[in-house]
């Protein structure tokens, strides 16, 4: 199993620089989370990795060789918005896509059977794809991604539109692929998914990599600057703290708040104030920041809000 290395890659479309001098690498047996809002350059980067597009500068190497038709055969790609041939039957479709990846027809049919069975979808084999529900189609697409036993897997927002049960199934399979030492790239703007699944992260904004490394290291780099409070009684002390600029409020509800300490602010003074103002304080904890806050910290409030908005409204 092999490394994927993206080195100093730049891609322009007309006058627009979609990707600017981007470098990162993905390792076998690990999941790399590619993060960033719309227009950050994620899709453009992925298209260069999948050899759908060619960089204007820099190189993309897999297993030490520049990517090309040869690497497409070893790679499975599930695009963010993707579809299937509506009028082809499920199995026929899978076999066709499998043979385009270099499988023999017999092998493709055999593997299609295996995966259809695995997804409890054997009954669909002879259905036309347009007769399937959206969720069923997504499973078929997922099978198409895995059919040729690729060593490099690229999932672009694989969970969007999946119900919880299928999302769980998909997550299990992604983790299984990771145990099998495959190299996995997972692009998303859903921070909690990335935090749950990924070993490494690469954060992109405006066509550039702004943060990169093992998830744990990245979090440690930001230190324990986050406070979680759970309490009863009045919560006006939070406004007071935010008003003086000592903290920034990440999330807040009637009995719980997650705050980020401003640089140089004294964590103890927050505890003192909370003890003084609330009726009861159940929890006071200093933790590493959630990924979301790291993102806000790195790319700035405006950009982060835009992305959160996207993840809520589902536009991507």
């Amino acid at each position: 199993m092999a490394h994927l290395d993206v080195s100093n890659v730049t891609k322009r479309y007309g006058d627009t620089v979609a990707v600017n001098d981007v470098s990162f690498s993905a390792k076998p047996g690990r999941i790399l989370g590619l993060l960033g809002p719309n227009g950050a350059g994620k899709t453009s980067t992925i298209r260069m990795i999948t050899y759908i597009a060619v960089p204007d500068a820099g190189t993309v190497r897999y297993d030490g060789r520049t990517v090309g038709p040869w690497s497409q055969q070893r790679m499975g790609y599930l695009p963010e918005e993707s579809g299937l041939y509506k009028r082809l039957r499920v199995k026929e479709q899978l076999v066709y896509l499998g043979t385009l990846k270099g499988l023999s027809e017999a092998k493709a049919a055999e593997r299609a059977d295996y995966w259809l069975d695995r997804f409890g979808a054997t009954d669909w084999a002879d259905l036309k794809t347009e007769e399937l529900s959206k969720g069923m189609q997504q499973k078929v697409q997922f099978i198409a991604t895995l059919l040729h036993d690729p060593s490099l897997l690229i999932f672009d927002e694989p969970f969007s539109g999946l119900d919880p049960i299928n999302a769980e199934l998909l997550r299990d399979i992604i983790l299984e692929l990771r145990r099998e030492d495959r190299t996995i790239l997972f692009a998303s703007h859903r921070m909690e998914q990335v935090e749950q699944l990924c070993d490494d992260i690469c954060l992109m904004a405006n066509g550039e990599v702004v943060l990169d490394g093992a998830l744990r290291d990245v979090k440690q780099r930001f230190g324990k600057n986050t406070l979680i409070l759970e309490f009863d009684g009045p919560d006006t002390f939070i406004d007071e703290l935010a008003g003086t600029g000592r903290v920034r409020v990440n999330t807040r509800s009637a009995h719980r708040a997650e705050l980020t300490l401003a640089d140089g602010a004294d964590a103890r003074s927050v505890l003192d104030l909370a003890l003084d103002r609330t009726d009861e304080l159940y929890r006071y904890e200093r933790v590493e920041p959630p990924l979301n806050e790291i993102f806000v910290d790195t790319v700035g409030e405006a950009e982060a809000r835009r992305m959160q908005h996207e993840s809520v409204t589902g536009t991507a």
Partner: peptide, 14 residues
């Protein structure tokens, strides 16, 4: 092929 978005899968193979 384009509007059903299957094309991106195909061009990741050919």
């Amino acid at each position: 092929e384009k509007s059903s978005r299957v094309v991106e899968i195909i061009v990741s193979s050919v």
